[in-house]
Design a protein around this nucleic acid. Structure first.
Length: 586
DNA sequence: ATAGGGTTAG
């Protein structure tokens, strides 16, 4: 395109700018803009807005804002375009600030403005403003507008208010892929995986169409459920549909396969990707990390460095550090922490990174060093950090630090029953029975069971879920009988129930019964009666696995010659021949 | 002219 003569007017500028916007040709656009200035042409609102759109789409927010600030008058479109520019680039507070200014300038927002500004209403302060914006939306009768409604329900879902999100969704007079995907992903992001899956099925029955975003959200739910069969189905469906294989979808598949226990499939997808983002690398690294494959983590990170196409981010280092920790590579982990702290990648160590290193030191028995690092780090330690150190103190029998840490932990997190158990175990191993009793009493007084223990196992595309001492499963009688049989059999082979895992103060017989009722044991028993000999068992647990169940699973692997994998809240335990990949530290 | 849902970590 050519810019000639000083006599260029609206029509020509409009045409030129439209072309620039379509082609994202920011250099050309800048020339057009410069020409306006040079010839003292004062663009009308319409053309300035085109410039704003061009600049925001080309990541030149500063230039866009400059044009916006210089405008003599603005209308709802120019305000909205500028707000949209900020929210799409993740500058939420600027977007919200501008929206407030817009209201003050007496410009009436329209459905475009509401739909875009709500995407910036995340976080606590954003949510408060979001609520207020919601009331404006109701007043102006935009609540059931499909774009505004989707944005609104998404805001509520991201704030954890899933019921409000559901309410808005139910009130939408029409639905489309985006609004349906928004509600599915709302559930999935909150870990309400079954609900997300159920909704997806409902929408499918109702004939809703899906796209790659829908499948990515669905895969998040399936990862959470470790529903490998379902995940495979989605994978082949996606292939059959010949959906364009977006990176995002492949990232979700990597995550799904590794969280379902199938690292090889995950790596196959990773290897075949024509383009990888940092999330692809992170998902793969996290996969290896959760499976305790420290060496693979280190190798893959090295490959990432060598390829040098994608810069590691803070999540990358989190994955690498936790991978070293889970894989028992203490020195390598410390080395990686130094590498990060040297600042070459421009990544600031967050509290989670310190958490990994503290975990790693504690695991290696370097409890004093871990404690020193907590005192040295520029963050206030969280319950998770103290909890990790307390666990290390118990395993390595460091009563001095353990006592201090345990007391701090009970102050910050008095409701968490697990803390009391670990502390009382620590006292027990030191023979301090009086303290054991005190801690137990304190626990009865203050602790609350937040999330009931739950385990499940996938057989023939069906998830079988068990709760502690479950009476709901259709084959419960058989399952209990089998569990009892296992108890007797394993005792003969040397299994001793670890009663320190029982939270309640009851007699031995009761304790044994409670222990045997743990959901993962029921799932294992069910797995044994429902599969033929030699078939590996894959159990998922929503919380951390207890020492006794971990031991029990070892006996399953040894006595029955089965490979057992258990995914708990933090990681995978691959158990074969009585030995677990976690090295009995988790 | 301006608009909504998505992937890793915690």
């Amino acid at each position: 395109m050519a810019i000639q003569g000083p006599e260029i007017k609206f029509d020509e500028y409009n045409m030129l700018l439209n072309e620039c916007v379509n082609k994202r040709a920011v250099r050309e656009g800048q020339r057009v803009h410069a020409h306006m200035i040079k010839t003292c042409y004062l663009p009308p609102v319409y053309l300035s807005t085109r410039l704003i759109v061009l600049y925001t789409k080309c990541e030149c927010l500063g230039s866009a804002r400059h044009v916006f600030d210089e405008m003599r008058e603005r209308n709802v479109v120019s305000w909205t375009a500028m707000i949209s520019g900020y929210s799409q680039r993740g500058f939420a507070s600027e977007a919200l600030h501008l929206f407030v200014q817009m209201l003050r300038s007496d410009t009436e927002p329209n459905e475009f403005t509401f739909a875009t500004v709500l995407t910036s209403c995340t976080g606590v302060s954003g949510f408060e403003l979001g609520r207020q914006i919601h009331s404006l939306i109701i007043k102006r009768n935009y609540e059931s507008h499909i774009f505004v409604g989707s944005s609104l329900l998404d805001m509520y879902a991201k704030a954890g208010r899933i019921h409000e999100a559901q309410g808005i969704f139910e009130c939408l007079p029409e639905r489309d892929v985006v609004s349906c995907t928004a509600i599915i992903s709302g559930y999935a992001q909150l870990g309400l995986d079954e609900e997300a899956l159920e909704l997806f099925r409902r929408f499918q029955r109702e004939g809703m169409s899906s796209n790659y975003v829908t499948y990515a959200s669905l895969l998040t739910a399936l990862s959470g459920l470790a529903a490998l069969d379902h995940g495979k189905q989605v994978h082949s469906h996606v292939l059959r549909c010949e959906l364009p294989f977006y990176v995002v979808l492949q990232n979700s598949l990597i995550d799904m396969y590794s969280k379902c226990g199938n690292l090889n499939y995950a790596r196959k997808i990773f290897n075949n990707m024509p383009v990888r983002t940092v999330i692809s690398w992170n998902a793969m690294l996290v996969g290896y990390s959760k499976h305790g494959k420290g060496k693979e983590v280190v190798k893959l990170f090295k490959l990432m460095r060598e390829e040098n196409k994608v810069q590691p981010d803070s999540v990358t280092f989190l994955a690498v550090l936790s991978g070293c920790s889970h894989g028992g590579l203490e020195d390598k982990g410390l080395e990686m922490f130094d590498e990060m702290m040297s600042g070459g990648d421009g990544i600031e160590a967050g509290i989670e990174h310190y958490g990994c290193v503290i975990d790693l030191l504690g695991r290696a028995g370097r409890v004093e060093e871990a404690f020193a690092l907590i005192k040295k780090m520029p963050f206030e330690p969280t319950a998770a950090i103290w909890g990790s150190l307390l666990g290390a103190c118990r395993v390595h029998s460091n009563t001095d630090i353990g006592e201090f840490v345990g007391c701090r932990l009970l102050e910050i997190e008095p409701e968490n029953a697990g803390n009391y158990v670990i502390l009382s175990n620590l006292y027990a191993s030191a023979g301090r029975w009086e303290d054991v009793r005190n801690v137990r009493e304190l626990m009865m007084e203050k602790a609350v069971i937040k999330e009931p223990g739950r385990s499940w196992i996938e057989l023939d595309q069906t998830l079988h879920t068990f709760y502690a001492s479950d009476r709901s499963h259709p084959r419960r009688e058989e399952v209990f009988l089998k569990a009892r049989e296992l108890l007797v059999k394993f005792k003969e082979s040397g299994y001793v129930p670890d009663q320190s895992c029982v939270l309640y103060d009851v007699d031995e017989e009761q304790k044994e019964k409670i222990l045997l009722g743990h959901s993962e044991k029921l799932a294992l028993a069910f797995g044994l009666i429902s599969t033929s000999e030699g078939v590996p068992l894959r159990v998922i647990k929503n919380l951390r696995i207890c020492v006794d169940c971990h031991n029990f699973a070892k006996f399953v692997s040894k006595v029955y010659g089965r490979r057992v994998s258990i995914r708990d809240k933090n990681r995978f335990h691959h158990i074969a021949g009585g030995i677990c990949s976690c090295g009995d530290y988790w």
